[in-house]
Design a protein around this nucleic acid. Structure first.
Lengths: 232, 232
DNA sequence: ATATTTTGAATGAGCGTTCAGCAAATATGT
DNA sequence: ACATATTTGCTGAACGCTCATTCAAAATAT
């Protein structure tokens, strides 16, 4: 006979991370949480685990514990570990895309303002957290040997890169700059990704310093369009 | 009773990769290989495995197979899987450092030439192979949750970054550029790392195009010092 | 003969997956 | 209203597989 704790008694459970908590408390609690809410809660716990332990040490047990739920739960809501991870990456990719999409909307129709916004939003508090950067990096590390991950990681991808390229092209025409836009765009995008990488590694680099470095790049590339405070 | 193949008969073994072969055939063959040679051979096989299967799926069995040796071999020459991986990363970090060290030597004492050489050598055939980039990336993915990896990955690190910064500073003084050197250096280093990341991801980006993008950066940042063909 | 290197079978820990069963929520019957 | 049946969400023990590690024995070198 088992001695049993009362279920869903959050006071008894291990401390959950703010992100998981938040999702768990959205809508209704405990048993009544909808399927979609549970999935989200597990995805958040997965990001936590990836950030804390890295890809190779992320286990379903850890995810379940992190979500404050039982062992079999992932295979119930997702079909397998693999599918949970894909859903997690998908979620992050969607969030990322939504973020820059919204930033672009708000930026108005001047190319310089759009480019500025696009660069800034990569270092937004919502997107650019240690936690999420670590999770991104975990996926990057596995991406080369997994086409599925590669496709989703590259979702910061074609459309994004195209827009970037178009903006650089426009500014070049406006400002009579001499550079070769494709190389320029590539170097700029790469720089932001590299800054993410470094943010993740720690080193005492902060979000603000990273953003400032990216801005420095914008300044030397498009001196007629930007000051350190923003587009002219 | 076992039916046994004759040992060390390379004709019978699985095809080994060029890198492993090369090491295996350095010095004397088969059993007579020295301790150091065997270690190197296993390290090359580890890089192969990381590149082919990613960190999380790299197994000692795969490494041993890749080296054309038996299962227990790694635990004999290295003490554990963990130590093999650390030795592998250490090897790559040393090779990387030696590469830019040599490039710096050869570049003479003009700051512009040195910076050019430093950027160029990151895209050198010897360093910048799919295989090695993939291995680097595999380690990056695990680095946040493993201090040891983090320390070694950051070996493209303090000294490297300091030299870079000093060079940017010198060029700024020479050329009366307006940028803030710390941000500039950071953005430039990050750009090169980001380009590596993209090279690894595939996308049809080639070493030459990546190098060209980095050069494009140099051009806009230091227009008085460089042309696309090199330092003035 | 002794020391060193290599082998490969055995071991056991860790992990993803499965599934029978429990409990909460909801639907249906009275 | 209350009782009963059905559905849905969840649990956790059990299973089987993969893989790092160990080690006795074999092969080779000195």
């Amino acid at each position: 006979m088992h001695l049993r704790l009362k279920k869903n008694d959050t006071a008894v459970r291990m401390k959950l991370t703010p992100e998981v908590q938040e999702v768990a408390e959205t809508e209704k609690r405990g048993r009544k949480a909808s399927k979609e809410t549970r999935r989200q809660q597990l995805i958040e716990a997965t990001i936590d685990s990836l950030a804390k332990r890295g890809y190779s040490e992320t286990t379903l047990a850890d995810v379940a514990d992190g979500a404050g739920l039982s062992r079999g739960i992932v295979n119930f809501h997702f079909e397998s570990k693999e599918k949970l991870l894909i859903a997690t990456l998908q979620f992050m990719a969607d969030e990322y895309a939504a973020n820059w999409g919204a930033a672009l909307e708000k930026a108005g129709d001047k190319a310089a303002a759009q480019l500025w916004a696009l660069v800034a939003c990569d270092f937004d508090r919502k997107i650019c957290t240690k936690r999420k950067l670590a999770a991104w990096c975990a996926f990057w590390g596995e991406a080369k040997s997994r086409p599925t991950y590669q496709a989703l990681c590259g979702a910061r991808d074609v459309r994004y890169q195209d827009i970037f390229l178009a903006l650089c092209q426009t500014l070049k025409d406006e400002g009579d700059y001499a550079y070769e836009p494709e190389g320029m765009t590539l170097a700029l995008c790469a720089s932001m990704e590299g800054l993410w990488l470094r943010l993740m590694m720690g080193d005492g680099l902060t979000r603000d310093k990273a953003h400032a470095a990216a801005v420095e790049y914008l300044l030397v590339a498009f001196p007629k369009h930007f000051t350190r405070e923003g587009p002219k």
